[in-house]
Amino acid sequence: MRNICVIGGSRYFGKHLVTLERDAGNHVTVINRGSTEPLPGTTTLVADRDDERQLRAALGTRTFDVVVDQICYTPRQAELARRVFAGRTGRYVMTSTMEVYDPATFATPPPGPAAAPLTEGHLDLAALPAARDTDGGADPATAYAEGKRRAEAVLLSDPEFDTVSVRTAHVLGGGGEDFTGRLAHYTERIAAGRPVDVHPDPRPTSFVHHREIARFLRWAAAGTFTGPVNAASHGALDVTGLSELIGAEAGVRPRYRTVAEGAASPFSFDRSYAMDNGRAARLGFDFSRVEDWLPGAAAESLAHLA
C-alpha cells in the first residue's frame, strides 16, 4: 500500500484519480478547503494551500510516497509547495496544461515549427523571464498559461524531490463531467441546427477524456521518470473535425459560420499547438484515440440536454 497525497482532488478528474488510488488499496489524503464532502475511505485535511502556516499545521508530521498537485497555478504556489513538502515526499506530480505551449500567450513566441505536434522540449523553461509571479494585468488566458509555465519552472529547477509536470490536453467529458461546459456548447448548437463559429483557417489541437487523464496521473505518480510529459489521446482535431464527430452522434450535419478571432467557439484556434504524446507512449502509457471516446462523450452530453 502506498501513501498518496492529492492537493485538490475533490471534483472532476481529480476525484476520479482519488477514487482510482483508493480502490487500488492505497491510503489517500486529500488537501482542500473543505467545501466538498470527503470521499469515503480517504482522509481529508482542510487547509488553504496558499497559507503556509495553515498547510504545515494541517499536515503535522505526515509524509507521503507521492504528492499529486491538481491546483498549482502560480510560481508562488509552487515555491510554497516546494518548501512545505521538502522532506515529506520523494515524488511530486504537478498537473499542468497544454496551454503552456500556446504561442498567443507569449510576449515572444518560442522558435520552432508551429504546425508540428509539440514535444516537451519545445518549451524551454530555463528561458522564461525571472519575474517571481505573473502579470496581474494580463488577460486571463495569458495569465493562466504563464502562471503554469513559471510554476513548472520553480518545481523542475533545482528540485527538492523527483518532479513531473503533466501537460494535459483539453479535457472533455459528457453530461455531469463536462466541467468546462465546452462540449455542451457544441452539442447544444449542433443538435439545434445553429452554426458553430470558426476561424477562417482553424488549426488542430489535442484532447483527452476525463477518465483517461485520471489514469494517466495515477500512472505518472507510480513512475520513476521526471520532467515534463505531454498527456493527450492520439489524434489531433480542428474545430470542424470535432464538430463532425459530434454531429454524427447527434444525427445532424454541422453548420459553420466564419467569424473574427475573438468571437470563435472554444477549440477553434488560428494557431497550432497540438501535442506530441510520444514521450509518455515510450515510457509505457497506452493512450486511446480521440475518435474512440469522443462519440460516447457526445452522446452523454446530448442525453444531458434532454
Rank of each mutant, 00 (worst) to 15 (best):
I4L: 11
C5S: 13
G8L: 03
G9W: 00
G9M: 05
S10H: 04
S10G: 05
G14V: 07
K15C: 07
T19L: 14
T19E: 15
H27R: 15
V28H: 06
T29S: 04
N32P: 00
N32D: 14
R33C: 12
G34V: 10
S35I: 12
T36Q: 15
E37L: 14
P38V: 01
T42R: 02
T44K: 14
V46Y: 12
A47L: 00
R49S: 03
R49F: 04
D51T: 07
L55Q: 01
A57L: 14
G60L: 03
G60N: 10
T63C: 13
V68P: 04
I71Y: 13
I71A: 11
Y73Q: 08
R76V: 14
Q77K: 06
A78L: 07
L80R: 14
L80H: 12
G87N: 11
R88C: 05
G90P: 01
R91D: 01
R91Y: 00
Y92S: 05
Y92W: 15
M94T: 10
M94P: 11
Y101E: 09
Y101I: 05
Y101D: 07
D102T: 08
D102R: 09
T105K: 09
T108C: 14
P110I: 07
P111Y: 01
P113V: 09
A115K: 13
P117L: 06
T119A: 15
E120W: 09
G121T: 14
D124W: 09
D133C: 09
D135H: 02
G136S: 08
A138S: 02
D139S: 12
A143E: 11
K148R: 08
K148W: 09
A153L: 09
A153W: 11
V154G: 06
L156K: 01
S157T: 15
P159R: 10
F161E: 06
T163K: 02
R167T: 03
R167F: 08
L172E: 10
G173D: 05
G175P: 06
D178K: 04
D178N: 06
T180E: 11
T180W: 11
E188L: 02
A191H: 08
A191M: 02
A192G: 08
P195K: 04
D197W: 13
V198E: 06
H199E: 11
H199S: 11
V208M: 13
H209L: 11
H209W: 13
H210D: 15
R211F: 07
E212Q: 13
A214L: 04
R215Y: 00
R218D: 11
A221N: 02
S233W: 05
H234F: 04
G235W: 03
G235F: 00
A236T: 09
A236E: 14
A236M: 13
L237I: 03
L237H: 04
V239K: 01
L242F: 03
L245F: 08
E249T: 15
R253Q: 12
R257L: 04
G262I: 00
A263V: 05
P266D: 13
F267M: 10
D276G: 02
R279K: 15
A281E: 15
F285E: 09
D286Y: 07
L294I: 03
L294G: 00
A298E: 01
E300Q: 10
A303C: 09
